[in-house]
Every structure is written in C-alpha cells, then in structure tokens.
C-alpha cells in the first residue's frame, strides 16, 4: 500500500507557501480568469506568480498541479487554450481538466503534459474513466463526491490509473460539473464561469440579531442570533418542500475524512484533495498540518480522527457519500 499523497489548495501565492511549508505533497491552483472553477475576485495566479510558485514548491519537493477545469466557451476558447499552453511552457507537474475539447487539444499538442481528470468531468464509473484514459492518456481521476467507499474500491479494481478523492472542505451534494442551479438563479455557473452562487449576487441582511442571506433576491437562509452560519451557496440553504422547512439538499457542513483514511487507502485511493482555494491561508495552514499528521499516522496503520469544526461550515463535519448513510 502506497502512502497517500496530500493535495492542497492555493488560492494565492501566500497560501501556496503556507501549504508547502505545512507539508503538502502537491499544491493546486488556477490562473486568475474564468479558466478555473474558483474564479473568485482577488484570488488565483498570474503566469509570473505561477512561475515563482513552481520554484518555491519544487525547491521543497512539492508538485504543482494547475486546474484548467471549466468548460471553454463556444466562439471564445482562446483563454483556455492559452492556459493549457502556458501550463505546458512552465512545466507544471500536471494539469487538471474537465472539458473534452481541451483534453483532446492538450493530449495532441502537448503529449508530455501530464493530465488529471477534474472532478468537474463527473467521471463516476470505471467505464467512463477508462474511456478518458484510452482517449487522452489521463493519469489520474479526481472522483466525484457522490461515491461510497465500496464503490471507490470497485472502480479502482477496474481502472489502471490513480484516483484522488476529496478529504476535507466544502461538500457538493450534486454530481460536480453537472449542476447549473447557480446559473438558473444568478446567471453564473461553475461550468461556464468558474463560480457557484457568486459573491456578486450575495447579500447579507442583518435583521435584529438574525442574519438573512440572499442570492439574487432569493432567500437562501436565515440564522438565529447564536446559530452557526454557512456559505450562501444555494444547495446549502434552508428551503420548504413537502410542507417542511429545513436543509433539503445539504446541511452547512464540511467534509472531513481524517477518520477514514485507512479505509480509503484500502480502497486503493492514491491521493487526498483538500478543498478550499477560496479559503484563507490560516485555513490552509491548519488543515494541511492536521492532514500531514493523519496521513503519516495512517501509514503506520494508525487512525487519527482530527476535528476541525472551527473551520467547518455550520461548525460540523461529515464523511459525506463515503458512508452510504449520507444518501
């Protein structure tokens, strides 16, 4: 059994340095435009910043993975093509992609560039993954957050490439890359714009001691005076269905897989991904340090459950779909 690789988020150069210093095996980031799925204001890297990031990470023995994981726009694929070309020119250790047209381009134009299949491609079974492998020689797949541990084990027994799974952070209850709820409400979607429930459409309204969160004039949630709040993401809100009001899609909660690393290793997982390029470097520091310890312990066959409720949405955590009870 090989040691789990720890793949950490870097929304900014400072977060990258923090992640590397805290023990990341690999760091992932995106360019500062719509070519990546965390196209948030003030975040991400210029070409020059990526170049410096590569030097810093490589000096510490960490890999750099570039996410170009949104879908290129019809009639305007230039920014995506440029991102792929820049990644190849700078010699990133791998590029994480979802768009078939781009995978095809990268595979043909830069045969030496290592390709990872983004979670945004929603490859949820071995047949789909093997298709991508055969066609584009992808070397790793990031699995969608809708699979159970036994399902992951089954997939690993039928594919020949690495699997990376989410281990901490925001929970997407929907199959990633196949959700346009955000654009239905705000006009901006993860696939086309690299954002979900974008801040530009969020309003916080303080009503006495209560906090109301609106997304494009739709009420997403209301929190009482001492209640833990969550992101104003539209699938994490409270809604009314079947005459009851509650968290219909997902509670404000974060994924935390520190407690099931042994099971994930046993299921053949190669790498663990920490979500949160939009989070601060304080978050990155704490989560990476904790996972470094948990992975090192797991290598010795020890289970180390680390609670990080202070960093979690709603102050709670879950093992999500890894445990079938979630469904």
């Amino acid at each position: 059994m090989t040691k789990l690789e720890l793949v950490c988020p870097a929304g900014t150069p400072a977060a990258l340095r923090v992640a590397v210093d805290a023990g990341a095996d690999a760091v992932y980031m995106g360019f500062r435009d719509e070519t990546n799925a965390r196209n948030f204001p003030g975040l991400n890297f210029s070409v020059d910043e990526l170049s410096e990031a590569l030097d810093y990470a490589h000096a510490a023995g960490a890999k750099v993975l570039l996410a170009v994981n949104t879908y290129a726009a019809a009639g305007n694929s230039e920014p995506w093509i440029k991102a792929v070309d820049n990644a190849a020119k700078l010699n990133v250790d791998a590029i994480i992609m979802a768009d078939i047209g781009l995978l095809d381009y990268a595979h043909r134009t830069h045969p030496d560039l290592r390709l990872h299949l983004s979670v945004q491609a929603s490859a949820s079974n071995a047949v789909a993954i093997n298709h991508y492998t055969k066609e584009f020689n992808i070397r790793r797949v990031v699995l969608p957050r809708v699979l159970t541990v036994p399902e992951i084990r089954d997939i690993n027994s039928k594919i020949a490439i690495n699997t990376e799974v989410f281990a901490f952070g925001g929970m997407c209850p929907m199959a990633e890359g196949r959700c346009s709820m955000s654009s239905y409400i705000t006009g901006k979607s993860p696939n086309m714009n690299g954002v979900c429930s974008p801040a530009s459409h969020v309003t916080y309204i303080q009503q006495g001691h209560d906090l109301k969160t609106n997304l494009a004039d739709f009420t997403i949630n209301k929190f009482g005076p001492n209640e833990q709040a969550g992101y104003p993401t539209l699938c994490k809100g409270r809604f009314t269905a079947n005459e009851e009001t509650g968290y219909l899609f997902e509670e404000p909660t974060s994924l935390n897989a520190t407690g099931i690393l042994l099971e994930l290793m046993e299921a053949g997982v190669t790498a663990l991904k920490i979500e949160g390029r939009q989070r601060s470097k304080a978050y990155v520091r704490e989560v990476v340090q904790n996972f470094r310890a948990a992975i090192d312990a797991a290598e010795q066959g020890e289970r180390m459950v680390i609670e990080m409720d202070n960093l979690s949405e709603g102050g709670q955590n879950t093992t999500g779909a890894y445990n079938k009870k979630w469904m």
């Binding site: 019809a74 768009d99 047949v127 298709h131 696939n191 086309m192």
Partner: peptide, 26 residues
C-alpha cells in the same frame, strides 16, 4: 453519461443534454 458514450463509441448514437458540450472542439 460518458460510460454510455464509451459503449456506443464509433457507432451512430445520440448525445443527451446531460453530457457537457460547451464548445466547438467538444
């Protein structure tokens, strides 16, 4: 789903709206 695309590869088939086609190359 991509698994269905794979099963039908190089045969005549249809693609539904749940497959992501956003650009000319795809």
């Amino acid at each position: 789903d991509m698994s269905a695309v794979s099963m039908l590869w190089q045969q005549n088939h249809a693609i539904g709206p749940f497959i992501n086609i956003y650009n000319e190359a795809t």
